[in-house]
Structures are given as C-alpha cells and as structure tokens.
Write a protein that binds this DNA or RNA. Structure first.
Length: 317
DNA sequence: AACGTTCGCAACCGCGCACAA
DNA sequence: GTTGTGCGCGGTTGCGAACGT
C-alpha cells in the first residue's frame, strides 16, 4: 500500500520524453482506498457498468486515475471476488497452471474462480515460491534446484527461451517430487519445453479438420499457428486441473498426433514465438494463426485475454 | 515495553497491444 | 502508415501488521 503522500520513484524525476503516470496529475488521490471511495466506485459501476476507465473517475466523482479505479474494482470490489485463505486444492491448481503457463497470472487466475491475478501473483511470491524452494524445487522452472556449479552461472539469459530443448532428459533431471503434478515426456514433446522449463519455439498444431479455420494464407517467414485445437487443449488443461493424469496423457497423445510442424521456423523468425511463455507484449502471431490456449474455445480465459492474443477477433466466435 | 526485522498484500508503474481516426 | 487513446498485463514498491529479540 502506498501512502497518498508518497511519491513514486518514477514520478520524482520522470524522463522528460516520457509521459508521467496518470496518477501524478495534480489533485488526484493515491494510496489506499477509503470505504467512501469504494462505495462511490462500486455504486457507479453497478449502475453504469465497467469500461471507459479513463473518464470513469470524473463521471463517478472520484479523485482517482482510471487505472487506479480499474485496479480497485478488478481486485477488490468486483462481485464474486473471493478473498482470503487459498484452499489446498486452489494451491495445487496454481502450481499446476504455473508449471504450464509460467508467470501468466491473468491466465492462471482465469482458471481459478473468484481469484484475481494480483492475489495469485502475491500468493505465489509470498508462499508458493518459498514452499517450492524449501522442497528443493526451482519455482521458475518447477525442476529440482541444482546446487552444483556449472560452467555458466545462473543468469537472466537462462530464463530466456532456448532453442535447445531438453525435453528428452527432462525426466532424468526431474524426479517429479510433487506427485500431484502430471509430468509426462509426451507433454514436454507437445509443448516443446525448453531446458529452463519454459515452453518455447513453436508448438504448431496443424489443424486440418477440427476448428475449420485454417484457410488463411500463411506467411512462411512468420511463426504461425496452424489453426487451433481448442477442444483438445482445453480438455487437456482440464485434465491436468482435475488430476486426471491418464486422461491428460491421452489428450496429449491425440494432440501430438495432429502436430504438423514443430519447426525451426521459430528460430528463423527470431525470438520467442511461443505465446505461452513469451511476454504477452513481445510476441506476435502471424495472420491466420492463433494459440489454442488463448483462443476463446478454451474456457477460463476471459475475452480480453483472447482479444489480446488472437489476431482476428472474428475467430472469437 | 521498546525496538528491530520480516512478511503479506494493496497499489502503482512501465510497457505493449488493439483499435480507431 | 502514423498517431492517439484505452486497456490490461507482469513486475515492483513500500506501508503496516506480525513476529522476534
């Protein structure tokens, strides 16, 4: 919580060329929300609906920036927001999804009813990461922490997606200390997991008959996703969530049978191309391609997620 | 009781994408 | 193709409570 009087580090001496944060506007309040503000915001949104956050504070009569209002609503005031103790099954689900998705908190939150990305992020940073470390597991990779020194010391570079997949020896390194986590070589294969545990490269499912949307022209130079397999991916994730290891493997087997290309095109195109593990802001799909996890067919992700990750809004249907 | 340290979490920041003009 | 606006994400900050000495 920031005290209203405290200035942010960036606002004390903002770069001249960059705009100052919206909250630094003179007269706008910052810091903890009061009960009165909560009531004003809640009443207004219940009456007028969400959206148009930039102008909402003025319309609602709040001395807050739009971002602050949105955050307060999303993380605190919104109906059905579950707060407080995270149940063991929720914790297990977070672990599973994090292993699969990485720090994609909004996606993880989308699979856990009533939990916000912020809450899950906080819970991860304050509880789960420490818990994994205490168990000898690297919270970033979900692999055993290796204490022996190597020729290349740990660095941020190792966090970046690598083209050298370690899928083949992943299980040799990972005894899967958490028996609740479904970990299969097939999963690694399908998801093309890198040696840092992050999925990378291009997982390209060539879908010829499932979604019926693979007719777009494809650019050879782009990292493309050949249609989607929403049904498979969704049920696969649900299988993981439901601790149905056999079913998950079965789903993966079905998915892998439809893999057309897991290709060097990813490397050729440069950079991480896997929307699962890339920063959402740093990857781009080629026209006519999309990631099945991000597609609307995969329920649990909200429309904005889908909007953000898909190229063609028409596909959201 | 007083002080110092650690921890949890609400809130903020910077960035990048989508979209419209 | 460019610019501006709106939005949402992940990462980070720092207050205040809890805990330890």
């Amino acid at each position: 919580m920031r005290h209203p009087s405290q200035a942010s580090t960036s606002s004390t001496s903002p770069p001249i060329s960059k705009p100052t944060p919206c909250c630094t506007k003179v007269g706008l309040k910052r810091g903890p929300w009061t009960a009165e503000e909560d009531e004003v915001l809640g009443n207004y949104i219940r009456k007028e609906g969400e959206g148009r956050w930039r102008t909402l504070p003025k319309r609602a009569g709040l001395l807050r920036c739009g971002k602050s209002c949105r955050l307060r609503w999303m993380n605190y005031l919104r109906p059905n927001v579950k707060r407080g103790h995270i149940a063991p099954d929720e914790e297990d689900l977070i672990l599973r999804l994090h292993r699969l998705l990485g720090n994609r908190w909004s996606l993880i939150a989308g699979r856990i009813p009533g939990r916000t990305d912020n809450e899950i992020k906080n819970y991860w940073n304050t509880h789960l990461s420490k818990k994994l470390i205490s168990q000898g597991i690297d919270p970033r990779t979900h692999k055993p922490l290796i204490t022996t020194t190597t020729s290349s010391p740990p660095s941020s570079d190792q966090d970046k997606p690598s083209s050298s997949s370690k899928a083949t020896n992943y299980h040799a390194l990972n005894p899967n200390p958490n028996p609740n986590l479904v970990t299969t070589a097939l999963e690694d294969q399908v998801l093309n997991k890198g040696n840092n545990g992050y999925y990378h490269g291009s997982v390209i499912l060539q879908n010829s008959d499932v979604s019926g949307i693979g007719n777009e022209e494809q650019d050879d130079d782009e990292i493309n996703y050949c249609g989607t397999d929403d049904v498979f991916m969704s049920s696969f994730l649900n299988s993981l969530i439901n601790e149905d290891g056999f079913n998950a493997q079965h789903q993966l087997h079905q998915m892998s049978s439809s893999i057309g290309i897991i290709t060097a095109a990813a490397a050729a195109a440069g950079g991480s191309s896997d929307p699962l593990m890339s920063h959402p802001s740093t990857f781009a799909f080629g026209a006519g391609w999309e990631n099945p996890i991000m597609s609307s067919g995969y329920n649990g992700f909200n429309q904005n997620e889908t909007k953000k990750f898909t190229h063609d809004p028409a596909r959201l249907e």
